[in-house]
């Protein structure tokens, strides 16, 4: 309050011209995955409270957008850390290197579950398998032993045990890291399970082409890409009682009064089932540090060490409380951060 009044008064008195030369940046800048954003902001806040460094700035925008900004180059007007809900790609490492970002430290902070949830009072979507999702959303599916353009209009068409309501799935858009996990662990898996993959290969497709065809989503409006955040998906589900959305576990746990979650292959998603690997749809979360910025931006290494400390990212820390599945190999990550081990040097 007092600080607020002081700076307001100061701002009002002095004219705008006195901004002066740009001072060296003393605040860490982070951007990237909106899935990692809550965790990063919790750590940033605690970091500001526990150290003399200012609270880092965390922006969202998606893993790909964050890594793109990360790879723009080295220097004060580029970000120091990119959050990602997927591993950095070879292509991105190459772009980074071309722009002078050569030494990247990869930090795995833990795991996140991807859950499938529908309106609390909606139809009984209680149990799914990857094959159900593939049959509902795949571009080409197996019908009576033949590969055809997806003819399924209701979930009951995909699997007779599911409710006979129109398919309306809200899945993350392609700029989200979550989409990739959804394609890999649900669509591709479902494609294999339903036998469509084998049918594609038998039809003369190479394995790679078949995989790609497996992960293609139908484009007739039954599957809706959500480019925004999970709140947008929640709003769509709120207004469509037959809708099913893809969420992060932490988001679902904050909105249990509105959403009901479905099991995947018979397993209920929870931090325990994800940590044990029973729940099939989970993915590691990462952040990437520019090594060149360590030393130039005050507090950067301290932030990374603080993030992966047992008290923060461990199973009893505030991140696990919020919904992160703690990484059993956290101690190893801690050591790597302390020694500034870069990618490719291992």
């Amino acid at each position: 309050m007092k600080k607020f009044l002081l700076s307001t008064a100061a701002a009002a008195v002095v004219a705008a011209g006195s901004a002066g030369a740009a001072a060296a940046r003393d605040q860490i800048q982070i951007a990237g995955s909106s899935t990692v954003l809550p965790y990063a902001s919790i750590v940033a806040e605690a970091f500001g409270e526990n150290t003399d460094f200012p609270t880092p700035v965390v922006e969202s925008g998606g893993s790909s957008a964050g890594l793109k900004r990360f790879c723009e180059g080295v220097g004060e007007n580029t970000i120091d850390i990119a959050n990602a809900s997927r591993k950095i790609k070879e292509k991105e490492i190459k772009t980074c290197a071309e722009n002078g970002v050569k030494d990247i430290i990869e930090v795995r902070i833990g795991y996140d579950g991807i859950v499938f949830a529908s309106q609390k009072d909606g139809p009984a979507f209680n149990a799914f398998t990857p094959a159900d999702w593939f049959n509902a959303l795949g571009a080409k599916v197996l019908k009576d032993g033949k590969l055809v353009e997806n003819p399924n209009m209701t979930w009951a068409d995909a699997n007779g045990e599911l409710p006979a309501v129109e398919i309306a799935a809200f899945i993350p858009g392609t700029k989200h890291g979550t989409r990739e996990v959804f394609e890999e662990k649900v669509l591709k898996q479902g494609c294999e399970d339903s036998g469509a993959m084998k049918a594609m290969e038998d039809a003369g497709m190479s394995e790679k082409d078949a995989e790609k065809a497996c992960m293609a989503v139908r484009t007739d409006g039954k599957a809706v890409d959500i480019d925004g955040d999970y709140t947008e998906t929640l709003a769509r589900i709120d207004s469509n009682k037959d809708g099913i959305g893809v969420f992060g576990l932490a988001f679902y746990e904050n909105n249990t009064d509105k959403l009901k979650v479905a099991t995947m292959s018979g397993i209920t998603p929870s931090t325990e089932t994800i940590a044990s690997g029973e729940y099939p749809v989970s993915r590691p979360l990462f952040f990437y540090i520019k090594k060149a910025h360590i030393g130039a931006i005050p507090g950067l290494k301290e932030y990374a060490e603080f993030f992966v400390s047992e008290e923060i990212a461990g199973p009893k820390g505030p991140l696990a409380q919020y919904g992160l599945v703690a990484d059993p190999e956290l101690a190893k990550t801690e050591e790597q951060v302390a020694n500034e081990v870069t990618m490719g040097s291992m």
């Binding site: 002095v14 001072a23 800048q29 954003l37 200012p54 700035v57 965390v58």
Partner: peptide, 22 residues
Amino acid sequence: IGMVGFIASNYPDGIADGFLHP
């Protein structure tokens, strides 16, 4: 221009900071 996110977490110290600080 990067003004949306977990950003408004520190009071600026002074005028120059107010203009240049995230």
